[in-house]
Design a protein around this nucleic acid. Sequence first.
RNA 1: CGGGAUGUAGCGCAGCUUGGUAGCGCGCUUCACUGGGGGUGAAGAGGUCGCAGGUUCAAAUCCUGUCAUCCCGACCA
Length: 589
Amino acid sequence: MRWSQTLIPTMKENPSDAEIPSHRLMIRAGLIRQLMAGAYTYLPLGWKSIRKAEAIIREEMDRAGAVELHMPALQPIELFERTGRREAFGNVLINFPIRRGNQEGQYALGPTHEEVITDLVSKLVSSYRQLPFTMYQIQTKFRNEERPRFGVLRTSEFQMKDAYSFSATVEQLDTAYDAMYDAYCRIFARCGLEYLPVEAESGPIGGDASHEFMIPSGNGEDSIFRCPSCQYAANMERADTGRAANITEVADADMQALEEVATPKAGTIDQVTKSMGCDATDLIKTLIYDVDGETVAVLLRGDHEANEGKIRRALDANSVELADNATIEEVTGAPVGFAGPKGLSIKMIADHDVPSVNPAVIGANKADAHFKNVYLGRDYELPTDAVGKPVTHDLRNAEPGDGCPKCEGTLERVHGIEVGHVFKLGTKYSESLDANFADEKEQRHPIIMGCYGIGVNRIIAGIAETRHDDNGIDWPLSLAPFEVDIIPLKVDDEEVMQAAESLYDSLKSQGVDVILDDRPARPGVKFKDSELIGFPLRVVIGGRGLAEGNMEVKWRSDEEPTMIPVAEVEVRVLEMLVDKRAEEAGQVP
RNA sequence: CGGGAUGUAGCGCAGCUUGGUAGCGCGCUUCACUGGGGGUGAAGAGGUCGCAGGUUCAAAUCCUGUCAUCCCGACCA
């Protein structure tokens, strides 16, 4: 490509709306432009990189045995009603009526394609002999994000590779899952990303059923907990905090008298600690939940955050949500904010750390009052096991400093950008959409599914976010919009231009992805743009070099260029690219 | 949806407090010089100051409403 024939609107200054590096750099390098909140045009350079990422994804999907298909983005709303996801997605699902003749139907733009593909498979598969298989597609997905942000990291329209596996047995599912997991590792490695597979919410299958692929980055939206001493890494919803009750024993003789303290209008942890001059860690907070219709009190240390997924698992429940105010007032006899375990008659479960708050400050189940010097056993009870120890659960979000569940280490928190997710779905969709198969005994079963997604745009944004310096983006060769940037320093110098054209033609004919900066601009402008966009290999051709019979070749990461005799440049560039590709391939597991 | 901020030329910004001919830098056009790290000089083009209403002789500036974008939070199958 000749620079003069494409559109590369680079910018010297930072756009005022862009804050994080990936957003700033992608705009400044002329990769993207914004249309509106959460919607970006990919300009020629940005789209080239997207296409390169897609090509890598396709190669690895094919290699892992998945087959590509293409489904409509426009989908009948009825499918989402059958799986219950019209309600689950809520406002995120973009849907609208369309009139055709005198018929009006409601349609959705696919936020993902479980419904469509399961419906398809339900019509085409009837026997275990047709299973297993995995299919994938790459297409635009639509989600009405309540708050698009971080430039291209969170948009309402994005390229997604979504794959779905269909199996007759759990073993087949495990095989498909492992194949996708391995493919993802290869994909992200080939894309030059530092990635971290983390355990994620496991859903109905349980166990090791879901992993998110994260790019560790300070600007990532997700919190990841990982252990520096072992391989354990999990997202915040999933990370285990401990396995046993943490009990502070207090002898009866040392217990201080229970005391009721007036705490007017102090209904939050913050207000109570201020009002009573204590720490959040001295409090036990009592959250009233509606769990499958039953009202349950959940006890946590004051500074901890409830994790509804863990509560759901601990109680083996389907739905967990905070009770409404009326229920709370009825159960506790006090307005919201003054609940406490003393004298509470509903079912109670406590986090592992609750018995360590001894004595504790708790709500008095009475407006504007709390108790202090509250002791487990004396003032309130928890369920106990056979030997009388309190039974507690892991009910809260992990925090930095929590013990690693796998070893003796301590968890640390890092932020990450989620670029991929692999998930053992089980039979949720096959059951609701009647995708069944007959086994060898003519027994009908729902097909066991897995789903596997990659956010293609996030791969590109992840590169810009994590691989850049003061001058611009540092692309891996595999994704760079062009591999080689040829810079003739003076385009009206015939000798220079002829040498540049000749090298350009021969590299192009050898399959090198090369751009010729044929703009009549000053050298400084071309150098700056080259580094801002981040072309990996740069060849500079100037009168001075040519007079000595040389061209100058430099990797973006090199400090100094290498002078290479004109006659050898083509061969050397080809060699350098081969070596670099091999080097990058060496990172792939 | 709650909180905060910003809308003036393609981009970055000043002007607004105290109403009175719309400005600066970059970029763009033409010419000359220059020619290895975002050049110099000269001459130009380009803006109904987000939009609507109001106050006023007069509004970028004051008032009301509205829209858009960004940030924090809530939400995120």
